[in-house]
Design a protein around this nucleic acid. Sequence first.
DNA 1: TTGTATGCGTTATCAC
DNA 2: GTGATAACGCATACAA
Lengths: 363, 363
Amino acid sequence: MDRPNRRPGPSAARTSDVPGARVIVTMRDVARLTGVSQSTVSRVLSGAPTAVPIADDTRDRVVAAARALGYRPNPLARGLRGMPTMLLGVIVRDITDPFFAGAIEAVSLEAAGRGYNVVLGHAHGRADEAIALYGVLEARHCDAIMMLGDMSDQPRLVDDLRGTHIPVVALWEGSKPDGIASVSVDNDAGIRSVMDHLIELGHRRIAFVAGSRLGDIREREEAYVAALAAIGEPVRDGYLQYASNEPMGGSRALGAMLELAERPTAVVASTDVLAMGVLFEANARGITVPDELSVTGFDDIPLAAFSIPSLTTLRMPIREMVASAVALLIDGPLDPADPSAWPRPIFAPSLVIRASTGPAAGA
Amino acid sequence: MDRPNRRPGPSAARTSDVPGARVIVTMRDVARLTGVSQSTVSRVLSGAPTAVPIADDTRDRVVAAARALGYRPNPLARGLRGMPTMLLGVIVRDITDPFFAGAIEAVSLEAAGRGYNVVLGHAHGRADEAIALYGVLEARHCDAIMMLGDMSDQPRLVDDLRGTHIPVVALWEGSKPDGIASVSVDNDAGIRSVMDHLIELGHRRIAFVAGSRLGDIREREEAYVAALAAIGEPVRDGYLQYASNEPMGGSRALGAMLELAERPTAVVASTDVLAMGVLFEANARGITVPDELSVTGFDDIPLAAFSIPSLTTLRMPIREMVASAVALLIDGPLDPADPSAWPRPIFAPSLVIRASTGPAAGA
DNA sequence: TTGTATGCGTTATCAC
DNA sequence: GTGATAACGCATACAA
């Protein structure tokens, strides 16, 4: 006999206890107070619609007692019994990326609307890998898991996920199939539309800043190369810069580009955060945007409309994508037996033209 | 006999199963395969240092079997037994605030370092209130709870928290005592130091933009008023603007201030996000920062160094504060019996002078 | 050194 | 209508 839990005594949970040291009140406590059996209490309190009819009188008394004692169901016990935990696991690479922060907000909202809570696992960088997430996963303590961003550089994690028995869906992992259901954005269409926009403005010397968000970014990069090829332009030396997804990355990338003999007249950044850095660096070097240099981003983070000048970018349909992912997870037609039949919705971003793009100098 | 869990049969969890439909393997499965009892498996696998000695041979076989079967401990069951869940509950008002995003990152990192995972509860706005957090709290399913930002406009939530039996600490709630342990920042000292900085630069007509982060913001506002009083300046009409904590808020606030007959020469924004909006609006109206207008923020979010011009602000010692809060929670000297003895550490922000502040025009 | 038995708080399956 | 009772997966007091 052992009782690791603090529990002062059998007749605990009196109204006036040591303040701040409230006690765990279980169904048995409620049952004792009501004078019924614990299983009756369960029937009343578990919310199971009407498994069997219950006397109104009994029900009322139980409810009253439960309230009086301050009864709270123990989700651990419920979970152990196989009930849904109403927890949605979310694994994200980087919370500090405003884009993902917005996505988390959207997930959290969508989840709340369905009565779910969000458990956030943070995949900070490669190093910590699955460690930080282990609990969240092997936990199987969430009813479903959502991955935000491409984690394919963490093979162990992806394996773990694939091996789990609860539904998993990946958002923004890029649209390669890897045995995980996914909801993605049409990066190719997005980049094509900014490129078209710039080309229409007369730009030909268009550079690109790739970021560290992996899957999505790679697709954007490829789309950039393809779009350039489509108008018969080469990817000039130094026009394709790789940076970590921070303002500093964009700043450095532009710095490098400005060293070039043939400077670009436009820079397509693969994320808004990078674009912010590009704008900053341009300003620091006395280059006027958009007169001397056009700049575009991707994501349309909240601050994109307030950069100087405001940023032309691609708006991500975050809410729609998140809603779609949550639906997949919860209303879940994700038949484990046939992953090839899983839907893989793809959403289109929309071009938002603001003040950071203009006609090419001398066009 | 009921079994809500999917479990194909006793000898399940074979290596080659239906892919994607893995099975739940328990200690009993491991025990059966090893030929020992479930409790021996528990002793080996639970990691309890050396409750009692175990034969090396047995241990090895158990470990091997566990690995072969892909055994994962069930945290629900562990939790039910009263073991720590290694979960840290974090409740935050607004993830999309880059400051809080950074804080969450810090918490997540600090928690991971101690083997904890983070469960995020999102307190989006007043409306959803405790609802979204209910699970996280009454759950008592986290070992400890951390509140990020002032939630005092959600009295029900705060009550729930105070009534809970696990340690709770509030970060950035402002330093008013309300029966919850807290770690806060010295808003007064912070604002005093920017005000001193501006005053030294010759500014007298200094305006303030208050934001919606409640507790902290109120203190900053009071400090602003006090600092002005200290140099014998009144709070001029329209110099104290209230805005929601978004760039647009700052933008509108500056707009209003520019209508005034006596325009301010400096604007102290209560957060960096607001300051971004102020910078944007100033630029939109052709007002040069810092020549015609000095602008300051509070928080030092990552983008603050990359605004145009880069923002003079107060750096929040996030990591130190978070570490302190986590220590309080986990190494926890939080005696429930005596809340008045709880430590309430206060950290000082440091002034970071960048390009958005300069001498007052005509000084 | 290992096995047996018990209980954590629930839900679900029986009887009554 | 309601009350016993058996699990859920795990950790431990106790016996062997």
